[in-house]
């Protein structure tokens, strides 16, 4: 079509390399922590302890993956923690109060999460309420609803025998008794694999990145951005439902007062894992590593008998360091 061509500017390279660099940084940070704690304490690298770390990561990991999706769109979801609790309470109502079978409880919890995400997404997309405020409101609404529905009392799952197996049982341990990997960790890995697939291979995933990269350009491409935004918040909600099942299974009860504060750990994991809070960039693998860093720190410092107060101080420092590393990386481009 054209024969005269403009001289192309020297092609700049590097974004891919440095994108991998951040993940590498988080990953080497994780390795460094593991090495340091193993040297400091012989108890750290015991199978039992590693399984405990993984088990402790499962709930926060699943919540962090949920938060990753909305954060890539350039949004935020502050309601993931209390939504997790709300879904646990819904499972409690279905299974314990109504006495319905286990699969109905599982489905109910996940659907409750998706429905809540649908509401958040609709408030954000249609009413144009900023995500921070919309999900802050939802956080409080869900916290209150959990207390109302449960009558402010914990709901126990003693009448549903299989329920605690969701997180605590070990499907793998039955086949390979040497590796009693808890089911909760399998659920985390399954959620991570599905989320990674959705993000990289599906239209929903592509729009998730596109919205975070330049929402107005996507709208001006004739895309129904409201629909896709609502879809992302709904998927995030459904994943919170999975987290709700995990935590309820671990505690063998739905604790309606629990939940607030979990969103901060989840967002911390996302940020440490290299997902940009301004949207458009992020990976499930990075978030997984971020969640592991938080639990390895908590576990290692506990083994070294460091007071719990100091653990949160260290986590705070790591969040700031991780974001600073990201700023340095972008400045270097």
């Amino acid at each position: 079509m054209t024969d005269t061509t403009a001289p192309a500017p020297a092609a700049k390279t590097g974004p891919r390399i440095s994108g991998a660099f951040h993940r590498l940084l988080a990953f080497s940070g994780l390795i460094a922590l593991i090495v340091a704690f193993s040297l400091a304490s012989p108890n750290f690298l015991q199978t039992q302890n590693i399984l405990a770390i993984l088990q402790a990561t499962s709930v926060n990991g699943v919540l962090a993956i949920a938060a990753t999706l909305v954060i890539i769109t350039g949004g935020i979801d502050l309601s993931v923690g209390t939504l997790m609790t709300f879904c646990a309470v819904v499972a409690g109502v279905i299974l314990t109060y109504w006495g319905l079978p286990l699969p109905v409880g599982i489905l109910g919890a996940i659907l409750a999460g998706a429905a809540s995400g649908l509401v958040s997404g609709t408030i954000i997309a249609k009413l144009k309420v900023p995500p921070f405020i919309a999900t802050l409101g939802m956080m409080l609404i869900l916290k209150g609803l959990s207390l109302v529905i449960s009558g402010t009392k914990p709901i126990y799952f003693n009448d549903t025998p299989g329920f605690n197996q969701i997180a605590l049982g070990s499907f793998i341990g039955q086949i390979f008794p040497a590796v009693p990997l808890p089911n909760g960790v399998l659920v985390l890995f399954a959620v991570a694999l599905i989320a990674a697939f959705v993000l990289s291979k599906t239209a929903l995933g592509r729009y998730t990145f596109a919205l975070g990269s330049n929402e107005e350009a996507v709208r001006l491409s004739g895309v129904n951005i409201d629909r896709w935004k609502i879809a992302v918040y709904s998927v995030t909600g459904a994943i919170c439902g999975v987290a709700g099942l995990l935590i309820a299974s671990r505690l063998n009860s739905a604790q309606p007062a629990l939940g607030q504060g979990y969103e901060l750990d989840a967002i911390a994991a996302v940020v440490i894992g290299g997902t940009s809070l301004s949207g458009g960039r992020g990976t499930v693998l990075g978030t997984l590593i971020g969640a592991l860093i938080i639990s390895v720190l908590a576990n290692g410092l506990r083994i070294l008998s460091v007071a719990q107060e100091w653990q949160t101080v260290v986590t705070g420092c790591i969040i700031i360091l991780a974001v600073y590393a990201d700023i340095l990386r972008r400045r270097a481009l």
Partner: peptide, 27 residues
Amino acid sequence: GLATGLDVRNNVALASLERFTSPIGVL
């Protein structure tokens, strides 16, 4: 105009993603 964080391929396809999406949503 551009989703500057996305690559050339995805920017070219941005207005036509539906055409490249299978019934189950895979690109």
